[in-house]
């Protein structure tokens, strides 16, 4: 397994090496040592490759990921897996704000807590957070699923579009146009699949589902306060 030590290797070389290996589609597995909170690590990967980051990362780790698997053994800084298209990103520790922002696909699996704005503007990504999430999570979320085993902070799902939010614990407050919705069999099925993929020890029946009330879809003067 090739090892890239960030004490000895420049970020540009680390990313260029990973990007080339991803493109070669050789299913190679890399280890990055001494990440020391560096930014923009393992970004723009476009192919089947597995990267294990031993330690904690800075901003935008695994940004715009496609097909690759990126596994961070520590915590991740702001914007982890931002705009992810596909593949899987696993964070053993906590994730800072904007985790999975604008993600279009793939699975972001956060074993610890996620900070504020988790899943902001998400467009199809699946995010599973084993701990809690911070305020303004799933703001303007458009598509995809956000699963939270712990609690959610203030203003969950504000200005939500069609993303599905599943929370097992408490929700401090719901944002504008976000409401609790009935958990139908098809939702339990989706949730079961996500929990299984994320290796989460929880039952779908323990969760509540939240979604858009769709009151902001067409302007109505009586809802103007919600804008």
């Amino acid at each position: 397994m090739p090892v890239l030590d960030m004490l000895k290797t420049e970020l540009r070389e680390v990313n260029a090496t990973l990007q080339a290996a991803a493109k070669a589609k050789g299913n190679e597995a890399f280890t990055i040592e001494n990440p020391r909170g560096a930014h923009a690590m393992a970004v723009g990967l476009d192919g089947p490759i597995s990267v294990t980051v031993k330690g904690s990362t800075g901003y935008y780790c695994a940004g715009m990921n496609k097909l690759a698997t990126v596994h961070v053994t520590g915590s991740a800084g702001p914007g982890v897996a931002e705009n992810m298209m596909s593949g899987e990103v696993i964070i053993e520790g906590d994730a800072s704000q904007y985790a999975g922002a604008t993600g279009h696909g793939g699975l972001l699996n956060i074993k610890g807590n996620a900070s504020s704005r988790c899943g902001i503007s998400m467009k199809g990504i699946d995010i599973v957070v084993h701990g809690n999430i911070g305020h303004m999570s799933a703001f303007m979320a458009q598509k995809g699923n956000l699963v939270v085993l712990g609690n959610a902070g203030d203003a969950l799902g504000d200005s939500l579009y069609e993303a599905r939010l599943f929370v097992r614990g408490s929700v401090k407050s719901l944002g504008a146009d976000c409401v609790e919705k009935e958990m139908r069999p098809e939702h339990l099925e989706i949730l079961r699949g996500l929990l299984e993929r994320a290796g989460a020890d929880a039952k779908p029946e323990e969760f509540k589902r939240y979604g858009s009330a769709r009151n902001l879809y067409h302007f109505n003067i009586d809802h103007a306060d919600a804008y």
Binding site: R12, A40, V43, G44, Y59, G63, Y98, T102, R117, I120
Partner: peptide
């Protein structure tokens, strides 16, 4: 922007965009 605020963050966002597109 959904994942950065202010010029100090923008510097890191630009770094990410450059790393994705090989500078």
């Amino acid at each position: 922007h959904p994942d950065w605020t202010g010029p100090d963050d923008l510097e890191i966002k630009i770094l990410e965009l450059r790393e994705i597109t090989g500078w």
